[in-house]
């Protein structure tokens, strides 16, 4: 069982390395995070707050946009691509179960994202330390950012697998993946914001809104990271919300894990019904 899962996972990593996908993802993360760290820290210099912490606060917002996109782009081809190439017939006629296959894909893709995050954000942390802007607390913030970004990535991998096995065609799956990204990181927040304004402190704001933040892994991620940084003083906005919520920030992490598990279960159920 483990050999088969590892076989799928290591092949997926190899493909990620071979087609320079990993390189591209790392470069994107490194470029954006360096830009934010170097340009964004200029005005914070006199505030007396750790430069790394400030950077991590901006990087959390960057992760909300980039990590789900990278994950969905990796995941959309996972099942639909194998069906399209005809390799799904070969793989599923060998003694591997559909769940093992899905787990293997997820581990391989997760490893690619984790490596890209470690290299991309790690480079930024390294640059900050090298220029004397680092501290132990700041490094812990960085580690937390990378770990939770990886969690966010895993959640959107699972959501991407749903798109991939529901459509069974790479083109449609890619379009659906982009649609999911747009909805989760842009439209969802806009809709919540609109509803909050319209509701003006009514039942929606008090009972539905906090749960709606948990239901979307992107929002839950932002909520947890900004709360953990104590960043409401630094960046305001969404982060200020966390003080008024009826649950501790760690509930946001549990929510991401819950959504991930549910998405995996749905993807596995869809995959089991496929006649390759």
């Amino acid at each position: 069982m483990f050999t088969r899962i590892l076989a799928v996972a290591s092949l997926e990593m190899r493909i990620g390395l071979r087609n320079r996908w990993l390189l591209l993802a790392t470069l994107i993360l490194a470029a954006f995070s360096l830009a934010l760290a170097l340009l964004g820290s200029a005005p914070a210099g006199t505030l007396g707050v750790d430069r790394m912490t400030i950077t991590v606060a901006s990087l959390a917002s960057l992760s909300v946009y980039l990590v789900p996109l990278l994950s969905l782009l990796l995941a959309f081809d996972a099942i639909s691509g194998e069906i399209d190439r005809g390799t799904a017939l070969l793989i599923f006629s060998s003694p591997i179960s559909r769940v093992e296959f899905l787990l293997g894909k997820a581990i391989g893709h997760f490893a690619v994202i984790l490596i890209a995050l470690l290299l991309g954000y790690g480079l930024t942390a390294g640059v900050l330390v090298a220029f004397g802007g680092g501290s132990l607390a700041g490094l812990v913030d960085f580690a937390r950012l990378i770990a939770t970004s990886a969690m966010l990535g895993l959640a959107f991998l699972a959501i991407g697998y749903i798109a991939s096995s529901a459509t069974r065609a790479p083109g449609t799956a890619a379009a659906l993946a982009i649609g999911i990204w747009l909805f989760a990181v842009v439209l969802y927040d806009l809709a919540l914001l609109g509803a909050l304004v319209a509701d003006n402190g009514g039942t929606f704001s008090r009972s539905v809104f906090p749960l709606a933040l948990l239901a979307n892994p992107a929002d839950a991620f932002r909520l947890f990271n900004l709360a953990a940084l104590g960043a409401s003083d630094l960046v305001g906005g969404m982060a200020g919300v966390s003080d008024a919520l009826p649950y501790p920030p760690s509930a946001a992490l549990a929510a991401i894990a819950g959504v991930t598990l549910a998405a995996f279960a749905a993807a596995a159920a869809l995959l089991k019904r496929i006649e390759p």
Binding site: R14, I15, R18, N19, R85, G86, T87, L89, L90, S93
Partner: peptide, 12 residues
Amino acid sequence: YLPEAVAFQKAL
């Protein structure tokens, strides 16, 4: 089994 039309990953 060898299916009729199988296209292995070109990068491998």
